[in-house]
Design a protein around this nucleic acid. Structure first.
Length: 535
RNA sequence: GCGGGUGUAGCUCAGUGGCUAGAGCAUCACGUUGCCAACGUGAAUGUCGAGGGUUCGAAUCCCUUCACCCGCUCCA
């Protein structure tokens, strides 16, 4: 299967268009067409209904430690700037990068370490990416630069300890991590990963605000409000669907990495002692959700992050990943991350930005010993009124990308198979095998031919079904062609009014995947479709 | 951000300095129709990605720019 034919079908049939296409397009921005918007809405509605509105809060679900409540929330895209300072996004998303002119590689400025070394009467600063192997890398680079063999390793005279590149002012004597010549690293340059805007008429620094780079923070800052207004006890999940914005350096791969995208996030608040069990519950529950909506086991994997990959505060993170066709064999792209965030987020908004690098997650201080970014000072801890225990809840965060999920469902649905034409000759058929719940159009209604009163009856059936489902009427061209058109749109059922309909009030219903046709009464159409799409 | 490639009708693509820019598919109309991309006739559709330049003449050559694809880089 090839991504180009999927992209081409998306454009042709109205799933996805490039944003501002008539002006040449805009990198990293995409529009959903008539079919795409229905598909994406169905994805979001399936998520909301399965996770929030349809959630059974009376019983203990399979794999869960106890019953739990779910609530929804819809926060603003622009929030108080302090939110991003305390969450860590402000510092993190203002990355400084250095480029190597020689190797064309780019490094994060604060993640390059190095050390002064002298040999053959020359002193240089060798560098390596920060990590366990850095001294080995430094030695290798130094030997190579001075053209020394391993047995002359003692000729290298190291000076001082390993320091970060950020401690250096001049890069003239710096050897890049993969370079052969000195001074190939550029000055650090800033990459703004958060979109900046201005609140109020004045565009001064004091009015600066940011478009949210994730929806999660809106939930954390409203945690207390939701708790107080709903009278729930923990465990409690709060869900939100909404747009987020990241000024990605390299948007790539169709809608996979967009600069404006939609997230479906849950922040699940629970007692620290139970958090491990809840983490496992959510990880498995979320993987299952994709399975049930038709993504096959082979294309979907769960990848647990290994220790070195985990943020300091996280006890576990698992990515649910899909084998997108634009990735190479054996590679997967992230659909959703499920992470155990401990009390990091709530504490950050209480106390201020925490230092992720410190073992005990201490408050990050500035040069004067004051908090670098001050928190709200509000108490976001929870008191259990049954046990009278007071604690800061731990958080499990299943964070899914609505656009990525939609794209995965599109890729998974895309199928080319062989079906006989009217003469029995095998022809290639393109069909989008969406799960009926996700299909943009649930059923199409056709008169077999455009005469003998068939269109009139078909239109009645159409208008009647339209009250319940997204349906489509088509009378143009041969019926075979109309079936194929619906196959490309992913419509699971086609209802055809034929000669027999006029005699006994029955129609045929044709299944997209099997091509089987069964005859049902007109009155049964609604219930049969409802039954088959599982609503 | 770097290197390579591409950009012509809704889609897939042909057209390498010269007449009014083409094909297949798709679309629409009329006729025909009797269950899986039928057929006939006809119609509509393009600032040749955008801007500038060279030339008597540019889709074609040059410059700039935008977008997409591949490889680096990045990816809370």
């Amino acid at each position: 299967m090839n991504m180009d034919s999927i992209v081409s079908l998306c454009k042709r049939r109205g799933f996805l268009f490039q944003s501002s296409e008539i002006y040449g397009g805009l990198q990293g921005f995409w529009d959903y067409g008539p079919l795409g918007v229905e598909l994406k809405r169905n994805v979001k509605e399936a998520w909301w209904s399965d996770m929030v509105n349809g959630h059974d809060d009376m019983n203990t679900l399979s794999g869960a430690p106890s019953p739990y409540a779910m609530e929804g929330l819809d926060c603003t895209i622009i929030m108080h700037p302090q939110v991003w300072k305390c969450s860590g996004h402000y510092d993190l998303f203002h990355d400084h990068m250095v480029d190597c002119r020689e190797t064309k590689k780019r490094y994060r400025y604060d993640q390059i370490n190095g050390r002064w070394v002298e040999a053959k009467g020359r002193k240089i600063f060798v560098t390596a990416p920060a990590g366990d192997e850095e001294q080995a890398h430094l030695t290798k680079q130094a030997l190579k630069f001075f053209n020394l063999r391993n047995k002359h390793i003692d000729d290298l005279k190291w000076e001082g300890s390993v320091v970060c590149l950020t401690d250096l002012e001049n890069f003239d004597e710096v050897l890049g991590p993969d370079a052969k010549s000195l001074g190939s690293l550029t000055e650090p340059r800033e990459f703004n990963l958060m979109f900046k805007t201005f609140v109020g008429a004045l565009s001064g620094e004091e009015g600066t605000a940011f478009l949210r780079p994730e929806t999660a923070q809106g939930i954390f800052v409203n945690f207390k409000n939701v708790l107080d207004s709903t009278r729930h006890r923990l465990p409690l999940g709060i869900a939100q669907v909404g747009k987020s914005f990241r000024n990605e350096i390299t948007p790539r791969n169709f809608t996979f990495r967009s600069r404006e995208f939609e997230q479906m996030e849950i922040e699940f608040f629970c007692h620290p002692d139970q958090s491990q069990d809840w983490y496992r519950y959510w990880r498995d529950r979320r993987l299952n959700w994709y399975h049930k909506l038709g993504i096959s086991g082979d294309n979907l994997i769960m990848r647990e992050h290994h220790q070195g990959e985990l943020a300091h505060y996280s006890i576990g993170t698992a990515d649910i990943e899909y084998a997108f066709p634009f990735m190479s064999e054996g590679e997967y792209g992230e659909l959703e991350g499920v992470s155990h965030r401990g009390d990091f987020d709530l504490r950050s908004h209480m106390e201020g930005k925490l230092d992720e690098k410190s073992a005990d997650l201490a408050l990050q201080l500035d040069a004067d010993g004051n908090p670098k970014w001050k928190g709200s000072g509000k108490d976001l801890s929870y008191r259990d009124d049954l046990t009278n225990e007071k604690y800061i809840p731990h958080v499990i965060e299943p964070s899914a990308g609505a656009d990525r999920a939609t794209l995965a469902f599109i890729c998974e649905a895309y199928t080319e198979d062989e079906q006989p034409d009217e003469k029995g000759k095998m022809k290639t058929r393109t069909v989008m095998k969406f799960h009926p719940r996700l299909a943009p159009i649930k059923a199409a209604i056709f008169p077999l031919v455009k005469k003998d009163g068939m269109p009139e009856v078909a239109k009645e059936v159409y208008l009647d079904l339209k009250k319940h489902f997204k349906v489509f009427y088509d009378e143009k061209g041969a019926v075979g062609r109309r079936y194929r058109r619906q196959d490309e749109a992913g419509t699971p059922y086609c209802i055809t009014v034929d000669g027999q309909t006029l005699e006994d009030q029955t129609v045929t219903i044709r299944d997209r995947d099997s091509l089987d046709q069964t005859r049902i009464k007109i009155d049964e159409c609604e219930s049969v479709i409802r039954d088959r799409i599982g609503q």
